[in-house]
Design a binder for these strands. Structure first.
Lengths: 188, 188
DNA sequence: GTCTATAATGAGATAGAC
DNA sequence: GTCTATCTCATTATAGAC
């Protein structure tokens, strides 16, 4: 397989589990079966690797959310599937959504990564807003307040639920935390 | 002032801004005006310093939540004040609640710190549950579902709101994210 | 594109003088 | 309790051979 892609995969996994500052070229090199100097050929600086990982992840993440909306019959189903994505992203409990993981080391990121993180975060919130608008229109999600505010709230809840589950070392904390959203989705 | 206390203060601030892996004895030493070897006299290993910071923070945090409940006339006021604490903890936007910050590097913490983090997180959730029970009894908070679940959800929301605000580089994201909770608190 | 070799820096930690 | 000095190791990064 393409080395570049393999490096991105390994770096993404490492960043989601250990954060941006928590992995080194040595870790990735070991997993990829090459030497760390070889990684510098593909990504001269660590910040280049980090940015490439974030860029690819943002794309996939936003595409996933758009997909989920288009291919779901109702907004509520789309929201359910989006929530499942965040739940699955935790794996056995040690991983986070990349945007969540990077938010924490935000103060240590390069300006380019910080900017991309900010943009991706806002774009994600917008996706959730679209989901809510769809769900409100088709009566599958109860949206009481401003959809933009509700979307931000749901995104924060998903991020916090992942973090809480990791802190408590109990992945079911995620499910408990998001239960109040589930209640607002009509089951049909 | 007591050097030990000063070191705890500086380490706490660093951990909340940069995470556990994101600060070094050299950083703390510079700020404290002593050499890093001197820090080892007070805290032989970094994990000792980290544990001491976490221990002190947990105590203060849980005491604060208990205080807020006791000294508030209504549960809703107590919840409002607890939320304000999380908002104020962000400072100008670069800081997080210590428990939130540590949840992210959980995979890099010593077993003792991991355990304490898990216990403190669960204890915090319990405090919020008590707040909700009080508020439900005095009719100042609308609690629709299981209070234990709602408490977990609110705690996740507060954690996620801090993270989101940092990621988006916009502290008002915190306020937007928590707005749906505010709506459930009766204003009297 | 990958390797060996090597810098350059910073980390956590210890020994022992004052 | 604080210092200087030093150690060991990991980290990011570069140079140059293959």
């Amino acid at each position: 397989m393409d080395t570049q892609v393999r490096l991105l995969d390994l770096a993404e996994a490492a960043m989601r589990r250990h954060g941006y500052g928590g992995f080194s070229y040595a870790d990735i090199a070991r997993d990829a079966g090459i030497r760390k100097a070889s990684i510098h050929h593909h990504f001269p600086a660590k910040s280049d690797l980090g940015l490439a990982v974030l860029d690819r992840y943002s794309d996939r993440h936003l595409t996933m959310l758009a997909d989920v909306r288009i291919t779901s019959r109702l907004g509520g189903q789309a929201l359910t599937r989006a929530i499942e994505f965040y739940r699955d992203a935790m794996g056995t409990g040690d991983d986070l959504c990349l945007l969540t993981a990077l938010a924490n080391d935000a103060n240590a990121l390069s300006p380019a990564m910080r900017d991309m993180l900010a943009r991706a975060t806002l774009a994600t919130a917008n996706c959730f807003e679209e989901l809510l608008l769809t769900g409100r229109k088709d009566m599958s999600i109860s949206v009481a307040g401003d959809p933009a505010v509700e979307a931000t709230s749901i995104l924060a809840l998903l991020n916090g639920a992942q973090l809480l589950a990791r802190a408590a070392r109990d992945i079911t904390m995620f499910d408990r935390a998001i239960q109040p959203i589930q209640t607002r989705i009509s089951r049909r």
